[in-house]
Design a protein around this nucleic acid. Structure first.
Lengths: 347, 347
DNA sequence: TTGAAAGCGGTACCAG
DNA sequence: CTGGTACCGCTTTCAA
């Protein structure tokens, strides 16, 4: 009989969970009527509606989400993966930058009625193939990222923070790296810097690559000798080593532009060990989203890559495409923001 | 006809997505056979299997995740919400503590084949009722948290980091607050502290409440005069104000135990503005998961609340319960860890 | 105003 | 070795 406990499953299955039919039977109504009563649809008499609702409540009925989704044809779920940032599969969360990207992504998705599913950094197809994703956000994809290609092949629209033109279903947000770097260098130059040292991570990350190019171009235009120290990885420890090397040079820089994400107060401490005062002896600008930058003495000037804007714009682009069903690629450039504070402002 | 494009949906619906039947028809086979071929189940001839697979590949077939889930009866999805930490709905991500809880939760879930869905801090039932959650992790629930009650009513097992005994479907991990606080105080006393000042946030959070109780009890046992400064909220700014007040006292403490999460290098800077050297003039222990604590000079002694262990144990408890179908409450106490570093070690 | 029945897209029995 | 068919739980015509 169809009323027998379903699924001769391997479990004891204490209470086989109340289904719509169970409520219907108990209430002496049909599935249809109960469904309509519970969803506020259809035209039912108040008495019947109330009776159905009451019965459902009494039995502790909860609709099966999966069944609804199957019917609805979408899950209102968006996948979220951070690529390339790969100390460990989830370490990106401890970076202020990604913390902001992640929370803003979740927030924006939510306001549009979508929930975010966290995907691991190294996710193969089978990690998400069983998830009913409507769309995906891929932060910092690699070039020809297989994850991206899989999503696209599955006709799951994506958004990434890397400009990609003309790929159907692929949307993007990006920043103008060159303008950002030049903005900082111009600012330092205006503050009196004659020799600007750059600390970056030796990474395939497009951000570093493009920023370095912009730096070299900017220096060349002025006949300024470039002065770069590349760490092998981002992070506090390596960054401090790089700063030490630069400041120990016989001809040390009078300004520092630190691209590799490091803790602002720690950078301050590192500089001070060399007996330098900021901003008098050295101008300093860091790329950082760490709010402590504003709380040190003096506060640290930072270049913000605007993770919140990137995430917000990206998700909106994505959802717009999703809900219009339009797979033509869209994209936007987001502005970076130079927060001028004490370490780069003299007098 | 059943072959007509489904769903006279309001969208243009460019390519109505390939279904299993489409592949079957194209391959001249039945749904069953194609399904078996693709899933590696059943006993099929190699020729047929290959043909089915090839056809599926050629048409770009992707199984519908929702339909599979409906059949499977579970979604392998775990909801994740952080409560009570409520500057803004997602701000917890910027705290090192929660960053670690979150990533460890995701990691552990993943290794057991579950994905994590981010739920907003203030989520009402309708925010997740349509999500096919198998279980949920609720970090820092409030007392009688409605979210918890909703999950339980929906027969969705949960785990939280608050001890709760005997509630079916509710599992927990917790730390021994009293032992943790006493451990720190004993350590400071052994280092020569005669008067230990405490900085905590005025919060309903159980952690602060229990820690304060333990502190007062410990002081009473020794006839030591308690010295507490409560900030209204956790965070760097308020914490520094509290430290300033304590150190400006006519009879200032010779040791500080900072419970309210604040950036270790910033705390160091604050103390130094009072002309104090660490650890000679002042011993310092902070509750913090911030890795920069180990990188300052001197490095800062911290009490770690072990977010990674809490998350790992919690998720394992949860999944064990989930997969055994056993709703009897389980729980575990996790040890905290005192990382003794330069600011509390003299000589 | 109510209910029967047809799907949503797969999977897994069995019978052939 | 293969395919018909029931079914997962719900929503939505459509007919009564």
């Amino acid at each position: 009989m169809s009323t027998s406990p379903r699924g001769s499953g391997r479990r004891p299955a204490p209470v086989p969970r109340i289904r719509l039919v169970d409520v219907a039977r108990e209430a002496g109504l049909s599935k249809t009527t109960v469904s309509a009563a519970l969803n506020g649809t259809g035209r039912l008499s108040d008495a019947v509606r109330l009776h159905a609702q009451e019965t459902a409540r009494r039995l502790g009925y909860r609709p099966n989400a999966t069944a609804r989704l199957l019917r609805a044809g979408h899950a209102r779920l968006i996948g979220y993966a951070v690529r390339e940032y790969v100390a460990t599969p989830w370490s990106y969360m401890e970076s202020p930058y990604y913390a902001q990207v992640t929370s803003a992504t979740a927030q924006t998705a939510l306001t549009h009625g979508y929930a975010l599913v966290l995907l691991p950094t190294h996710s193969a197809r089978d990690e998400w193939a069983d998830l009913p994703l409507d769309a995906a956000v891929v932060a910092d994809p690699e070039t020809d990222d297989p994850l991206v290609e899989d999503f696209l092949a599955a006709r799951i629209p994506i958004v990434s923070d890397r400009r990609v033109e003309g790929v159907p279903g692929a949307h993007w947000v990006d920043i103008d790296h060159e303008a950002a770097v030049r903005g900082v260098l111009d600012h330092l130059e205006a503050g009196g810097a004659r020799r600007i040292g750059l600390v970056a991570a030796l990474s395939t990350s497009l951000f570093y690559v493009r920023a370095l190019e912009a730096y070299h171009a900017w220096c060349a235009e002025r006949g300024m000798r470039p002065l770069v120290d590349l760490t092998r990885m981002p992070g506090n420890h390596e960054t401090r080593g790089a700063i030490d090397r630069l400041l120990d040079l016989p001809d040390p820089p009078d300004a520092l532009f630190v691209l590799s994400e490091a803790s602002p107060p720690l950078i301050l401490e590192t500089v001070r060990r060399h007996g330098l005062r900021l901003p008098d002896d050295l101008l300093l600008v860091c790329v950082s989203e760490d709010p402590t930058a504003a709380q040190t003495d003096p506060p640290v000037t930072t270049l913000s890559l605007c993770p919140v804007e990137i995430a917000t714009v990206g998700v909106e682009l994505l959802i717009e495409a999703l809900e219009s069903g339009d797979r033509t690629s869209t994209g936007r450039i987001v502005e970076t923001r130079l927060e001028v504070r004490g370490t780069s402002r003299r007098g």
